[in-house]
Each structure stands twice: as structure tokens, then as C-alpha cells.
Nucleic acid binder design. Sequence first.
DNA 1: GCTAAGCTTTTCGATATGCGGAACGGGTTG
DNA 2: CAACCCGTTCCGCATATCGAAAAGCTTAGC
Lengths: 255, 255
Amino acid sequence: MNSAQPGRHAVKTTDTAFDIVESLWELETASLGTLAERHGVAKSTVHRHLATLINRGYVVREGDEYRLSLKFLDIGQFTRTREEAYVLAKPKVRELAEKTDERAQFIVEENGRAVYVHMAAGDHAVTTNTYVGKHAPIHASAAGLAILAKMDEATVENVIERHGLPSYTEYTITTRDALYDELEAVRERGYSVNDQGHIRGLRAVGAPVCDRNDEVIGALSISGPTNRMQGEWFDDKLPALLCGSANELELNIAF
Amino acid sequence: MNSAQPGRHAVKTTDTAFDIVESLWELETASLGTLAERHGVAKSTVHRHLATLINRGYVVREGDEYRLSLKFLDIGQFTRTREEAYVLAKPKVRELAEKTDERAQFIVEENGRAVYVHMAAGDHAVTTNTYVGKHAPIHASAAGLAILAKMDEATVENVIERHGLPSYTEYTITTRDALYDELEAVRERGYSVNDQGHIRGLRAVGAPVCDRNDEVIGALSISGPTNRMQGEWFDDKLPALLCGSANELELNIAF
DNA sequence: GCTAAGCTTTTCGATATGCGGAACGGGTTG
DNA sequence: CAACCCGTTCCGCATATCGAAAAGCTTAGC
């Protein structure tokens, strides 16, 4: 999944270091030998790299097993709170989840993908395998569409170019034309809708959140099962609630 | 063993890569030139490293400024949810915060330090500069003392050796004897107390959380201002509530 | 209580590879 | 227009990284 380019200017050593990190991410825990075999490098190489990572506090050793340390949690939490807007979004997400009894989230764009920054679940919310920090396809989520609708065309083109429009269900938007039509609809409506574009049986509405310069920062969204997400509730009440929250958040951000 | 020998078998290139990562952590955002100057390396070197980090998705570029990406959030969240016990602790922390109206947290030990894994604040909770992911001195926190009390002496010695017993206020435990006395008291009491050992004006109680083999996993704690943390509430009610939660959590973990 | 097998750790020399410095291109400011 | 910032590229050299093999450790099996 390393869709990196030729890496003409890449530092190979750093690449192997992060190969190890990402293996530990995937495997949860692994022995030195396992890691060496996995990447086809000598055990001594892995050993040296693990020693370095341990010294720096990114990896901890438990017997003969290695795992990632909680330093990543520390740094990760930092990236989540650095932008004041992200912090302000948190209570809004909780509020939406409580009011609607569904799952609400605040999502931002990074590298052409959607990233879950905050998430809260009402009592009846569905449990999916989404989690804070998760990266998701931007064109197949309500929040993602809301963000795209606020971007200029060049940026959208860039995203399409980098990631394409992969299909997840028969409802996924997979063509450039369909996407642009949808984005136009979002701009008219003021909010976005995702009808099972990513996961079958899941509908969502999303609203962009912009700063005082009208630059999009992220988006709020609410998602739930199709059987509850329909009728007047889905068409009117929910969007109104969502847009209200997005608006309040924008005011908080702008002061 | 060789923990005090930094760099002996270290990979220098990886070190400079993480130097850059940690500079971005500290500076929030920086230009290529700034980073080069900061570490006394050539701009070309920094450029190559940044290119590698961007390729891998750990750094994003905004104009001529670089910052850490939300990939760290993704990995960090993973390290936080990998252990089932950590996940089970979350609702208990919230519950404690709501019941006591103070700040509650779940903390684990890593590399001889205390790390905040979950945190929740009641309506009247004090706001301090603690946050999820934060690393704190283990001997100067209630949860840390609770964890130390459950460790065997060799492990405790190891922790003291690595980090010492630095002082933060006039109440901090700073001698080996005082620490061992305190740990003994914790074992008798069944819970730990931290009276302004880290921050003046802040008291806390902590209770260890163990798995079915009686191995300590982490600790729950409740903290608040000295004016509320006193009398019968602090001496009896609060510890009872805390130990109850810790007990329930242990049962959940063991099934 | 011994050997064997699994693993990590260390050593060491060859060579690939990261490094620095200088030159380049492209904006922005005076 | 020139000076100055930024990032980017090129290239030769020294060195830090690599792999293979052998040396240490534990644990397991008999």
C-alpha cells in the first residue's frame, strides 16, 4: 500500500525504519526474526533499527517481542489539538450525537483523504469499525463530500488524480461527472448526503466548517442506519440540526 | 542492562529523521531552513528527509511550511486500543468523573513513566495541562504509586535508576526510603494517595488495576483541588468509589 | 543434566548510501 | 531591477549501513 513514487530523493534507511514501525502497527507485536523475514533484510539490520527506535522511545520491548510505544499516542494527540478549530469541534460532535442518538463526527481532509478527528456515539448509534484517526476515502463519505464542495476545482482534481474514485458499494460515486454534479448539489443544498456510498445500509449527512476566510477546515457529519435515516427526519430535521451546529462552530472559530 | 548507553548501536540516519519529526512536534510548524539550522545539518539533508517523510505520509507540506500529519493520530489511537483492558477502562473513567464531578483518569506504565490513556472531567473538575498521551513522573502521581505498589522490587529499582525521583513541590517523594514506605502503605490501604506531590494544590487517589494473573496493567485515579479533596469525602467515600470501579474493571478484564 | 534449537546480539569488512556544499530556479520585497 | 528569502538539484567523497556468519543466551526436550 506504499503508493509512494520512485522515491528519487528518498532516504532508504528511514524507509526501512518506518517499514518496521508499520509492521509493528499491523502485527501489534512481533519478534526480531519475524520482522527480518517480513522485509527480507538481515536480522542484524532489524536489530540495529529496533535498538534505535527503543532508544528514542518509539518502541518497547517485552521479552523477545516488540511493540509500538504510547509515544505515538502523545504525538497523535498533539496533531489533534494543534488546530484550535479541532478542539472547538469536539463538544459540537458530542452535542450532535446526544441530540440525534446517532453517531456524529468531525472530519478533516489530509493528503486527499478524510480523517476522523472527533467521534461520538448516541445510545442507539450503530457500531462500525471506524475510529478516531482512521483514514477514509473522501468521495465516499458525507463529510468528505462537504469538504470537497468547498474546495476549488484544481484541488479536487488533484485529489481525484491521487486516489481515483474507487467503488465500495453500488451506490459509490465513481465518475468525475457524477462527483461534480453531486458537489454542485451540495453547494446548493448547503449540506451533503451520502447514501450508502461507503458502507451498505449506512446513510449520512455532512456540513462543511470554514474559517473566517471561508477556507474549509473540516466537516461535521451524522450517520446512521437506513431504516432510521429517512423521511422528514433525514430530509429536514437532521440537516437543520447539523447546519445549525456547523454554523455555531464557525462562529466560535471566527470569534 | 544497556539502557544507559545511547547511540551505541543506533542508526544515525534514523536519528536525524526523528530529530526532524520531534522538531515539528515541538515547533508545530517549521520551514526547511529553520529545521536545517536547528540541527546544524545541510538544507539538502533536511530536504531529503522531509521528502521521505512526506512520501510515507508522516509529514504534510503547506506552502513552505511543514507539519506532522494525522497519521500519528491513527497510530496513536491504535496503541491506545490494542489492549482490550485499555478499552474497557474508558467507560469506568467517564463514570468516575460523572459520579465525583472531578477529573478521573486511567494511566499505564511505560518505560518507567506514567502515561495518560483515558481522561474524563466532571463539571467542576479543575483544568490542568494534562492530556491523553501525556507522560508524567510515575512517583509523583497517585496512579503511578498504585502501579509501583504492585510491581516487584527489582522493577521498581529499575524505574528509580532510570528516572530518579525528581522533586516538583515540597511534598514530592524524593528518597528511596520514603517511596518504599509509601508503597507499603498503599498495599495496606489498597489504594494510593498523592498529596500535591506533582502540582501544588492538587490531591488525588489511585487504585491499581490487575489482570487475572495479578499482573498490574494500569491504574485508575481521581484528582481535584485540595479544598474539595478532604475530610470524609477524601478519606472514605472517594476511595470506596474508586476501589469499587477498579474492582469492576478487573472483573470485566478477567471475564 | 545434558544437548539441541530457538532466539538475540556482536563483530567486521565491502560497498552502497547518506552527506555537505555550491549552484539553480522561482517567488516576494524593497 | 537587484537582493533576499524559500525549496530544489547535482555530484564527489567519506562514512555509516548493510549482510553473513559466528558468538551468546534461554528455553525445551529427553
